[in-house]
Amino acid sequence: MPDLLSILTSLAWPFAIAVAWVAGEFGQRWTGLPRISFYGLAGFALASPQLGVLPAPDTSMIALLADVSFGLILFELGYRINLHWLRANPWIGVAGLVEALATFVAVYVIANRVGTPQLTTLMLASLAMATSPATVVRVINEQRSSGQVTERALHLSAQNCVLAVFAFNVVIGFWLFRTSEDLGDALWKSLIALVMSAFTGAVFGIAVPALLRAIGNPRLDATVAFAIGVILLVAICDTAHLSPVVATLFFGLVSRHRRVAFSQTQRNFGALGELLTVLLFVFAASTLNWRQVVSGGTLALLVVAARLVTKTVGVALFSHLSGISWRKGALTGLALAPLSVFVILLLEHARHAGVQVVDELRAMAGVTMLLEVFGPIIIQRALLWAHEVPERSHAA
């Protein structure tokens, strides 16, 4: 007869996903807040360091499934990016670059002032530049929002992703070179890996639409084909130690410009995407330890405040130049608050690359937990204040 402990362990993740889904449905119905905030709370409560229901995330295939879920979201984000719009209105990109660099500088100065080691400070500052596309895309789809703030938040979150991954990998390369003095290994695990990731994603972005055209019925088969492409691409990146973040984003970006239809009914990749989204947010919160969250609490609050100020002001400064009001510019910057899932997966990849210094980023655990819950609420409020959410969605 199988051991009772092993049976309970094998049931832990399905049980956690079910609990999180129920919490999300009832929580959204009772409070009107985004479901993913409740997914995060459930994952954090059930995690190994808290209630101990879930095993350590790296002991199973859950981490790979989380990467697949994140890849599906990044593909959808990339598919919604309009490069022609950015070329016609370059001030949007300039605003994103300014707010990201301002965030880096502000967080670096704050962390340095409180005595954080330099390398950890650089990693913290580079991670703080990011905006989590998982939260942005999910809340926008859930709220069915559309308009200037919605589209700019999507485009700027994608830009922030690329900038944060680039800066983070430069810091990782520096750390690897300092510890091993192997320049080739440091370059491969940092900058060259990013270029190869983008190239691999672009190849998929050309190959999958070409395959759909060869099949002759791209509208009917696009969702399944793209989902399989993302799964395969994430698996390749995992094996070759490439960045699935960059690869899947470029996959979606290039696919869009190959002009294969991706209909409105296929947002979130249907039931598969919905299920994997629950898993993703439960996984992300389950990696957090309440002791690290508490110990880095003060610095976490300072980092969250700095991000809100730099991103809101940075985007608002270029509002009129980019064709919108100051108010909508400020709301766009506010909508860039989410961070959690992106940071957790990036830190997991760094840890697998052998960068043990990530364990020192206690402040980031606090930032992650705060924005795991409040990030979705902040972007939801920004979209509501911008009047880009239909009344029916708001009432639901």
Rank of each mutant, 00 (worst) to 15 (best):
L41C: 03
W91C: 00
I378E: 01
R80V: 03
A16I: 01
C161G: 11
I62M: 13
T179A: 12
F262A: 07
S197Y: 06
F269G: 05
W85L: 08
W91Y: 07
L308V: 07
G201P: 08
T332P: 02
K189D: 04
P2H: 08
L83N: 09
A186C: 08
V355T: 02
I73E: 00
I228K: 03
P244H: 04
F318D: 06
A164I: 00
A225V: 11
F26S: 09
D182M: 01
D182Y: 02
G329E: 03
L321N: 08
G147Q: 01
Q148P: 01
F269Y: 11
T298F: 14
A16S: 03
T103L: 02
L212I: 05
V137Y: 05
P244D: 08
A198Q: 05
G205D: 07
A158I: 10
V260L: 14
Q148V: 13
A202E: 05
V195C: 11
L154C: 00
L339C: 09
V260T: 12
L64Y: 13
A153D: 00
S243K: 06
L233Q: 13
F250Q: 05
V309P: 01
G366E: 04
S340Y: 00
P133V: 06
M369T: 02
L11G: 03
N268D: 11
L233D: 13
A47M: 11
S48Y: 14
L301S: 05
A382P: 05
R381E: 13
R362F: 09
L5R: 15
A167D: 09
P14Q: 14
V234S: 11
F70K: 02
L331H: 07
N289M: 04
G115W: 03
P34V: 15
L232W: 11
S48N: 15
T298R: 10
V203L: 14
F75T: 00
L249N: 03
V224E: 08
A12L: 01
A102W: 10
R267N: 12
S10R: 13
V203W: 02
A167C: 12
L51G: 14
R113V: 12
L371G: 01
A316M: 13
A247K: 08
L127T: 04
I92Y: 00
F281G: 06
L54I: 11
V195G: 15
G184H: 11
P90Y: 08
L280I: 09
V94P: 04
R144M: 09
G205L: 07
R351M: 03
R351A: 05
D185G: 06
G252N: 03
T239H: 13
G229L: 13
I377E: 07
L253G: 07
R213N: 10
T135W: 06
V19S: 08
R258C: 05
V245K: 01
R291T: 05
W85E: 12
A102I: 09
N289Y: 01
F70W: 05
G375M: 00
L33S: 14
E151H: 04
H84P: 00
T248W: 04
G40C: 02
I7N: 02
